[in-house]
Design a binder for these strands. Structure first.
Lengths: 199, 199
DNA sequence: CGCTGAATATACCGATCGTTATATTGCCCT
DNA sequence: AGGGCAATATAACGATCGGTATATTCAGCG
């Protein structure tokens, strides 16, 4: 590959990487492009050479990481059978994904559960819906296999996503998320979802 | 009460009210003070007469609504006995609180689960911790009364808060949250928490 | 009446915002 | 060698940001 092309890619990826660091910490509105280009060690026209504007940079960041995480989830779900083990690997895979780079769940969940961002209105819902439908399919399957009580799959998918996302969001902000996002917690979450808290 | 004092109170409350509307929609960083004073129909020095700066206005808004919602929760919990009914009224009371003014849970949850706001770093944790401890006490009691399996009360409180907060956060953003935050959903959430999803 | 002090307005401050016109560098192809 | 083009930098644009110096209004009070 040509040097100029590879150098361009590096610059572009460097911008995306530092944008990820900053946006995942303080969000789209609070981070200025000067902060990003300063962290990346470039100047403004360089950023505007690689991205149309601030909004495009942010949207690409979001789309890219939603894409990767979604593919990983679909992969581990497809590689397992039975609703319980599928839910289990889904949580565990999400935990691993977070520990590999906590900035990514921070960006995704804080952007989704945080204040509205008019610049990207509408694109978040379609991205998160793909994962919701995946969870919902597992629920429908679980009910059909009679390992789950027959209830509204939308409700089940919602509660499961709550139990999975919230710990990811909360603990990915702490220092050393690995202290909290343990395999034991992943198992406990699935157990809590399936068995409940009562005796 | 003097006319000037009452007029001052109205202006101050008008500012807080429009700030609530705007901050709960797009967050602290994305909303400028000009937008607030324009909505309230006053000028900048008026805002700075009633509040030290943008940060103080926001902090007062946050503290005020956390205070009110916390008191309401403690009240309904104290008025009921048994862990199941306490959990039930807690969810239902939170739903009612949201339906009375969806801007308030939007502000609270989006501020808490959204990107970090350096200006108010540290004050959110102490405010949310009070509610978490309340939930935790119900869990400890429930375990002691043998209506819940003996598990880590922190984990139980975490999962219950997940199941309660996430629907509140998600549905308070939709139009007419009352379509979703029904008494039936409140009951389903408590049932899901206690009984789980499996057969 | 004239004084005081809270409340509000006009007009502006310097700083930062997202963005760009212009110029320069340096590799690739001919 | 030199044209062409992607990549980067210097320097600045107008707009908006949070915040304020100053002036005016108005109510309460001696």
């Amino acid at each position: 590959m040509k040097a100029s092309r590879s150098s361009a890619t590096t610059t572009r990826e460097k911008l995306l990487d530092h944008a990820l660091t900053l946006f995942s910490d303080r969000g789209y509105a609070a981070v200025g492009i000067r902060e990003i280009i300063h962290a990346a060690g470039v100047t403004q026209p360089t950023l505007y050479h690689h991205f149309k504007d601030k909004r495009s940079l942010f949207e690409e960041l979001i789309r890219q990481h939603y894409e990767v995480s979604q593919e990983q989830l679909e992969q581990v779900v497809a590689a397992n059978n039975g609703c319980e083990s599928r839910l289990q690997v889904m949580v565990q895979s999400s935990f691993d994904f977070c520990l590999a780079d906590p900035r990514i769940p921070r960006l995704m969940f804080q952007t989704y559960y945080g204040p509205r961002i008019p610049e990207i209105d509408g694109i978040l819902d379609s991205l998160t819906d793909r994962r919701f439908q995946l969870v919902k399919r597992i629920m429908v399957e679980g009910i059909h296999e009679k390992c789950m009580r027959p209830r509204d799959p939308d409700f089940l998918a919602l509660t499961f996503c709550c139990l999975m996302d919230q710990p990811l969001n909360i603990f990915s902000r702490r220092s050393r998320p690995g202290r909290f996002l343990t395999p034991a917690l992943a198992t406990e979450i699935v157990d809590q979802f399936l068995q409940g808290a009562s005796t």
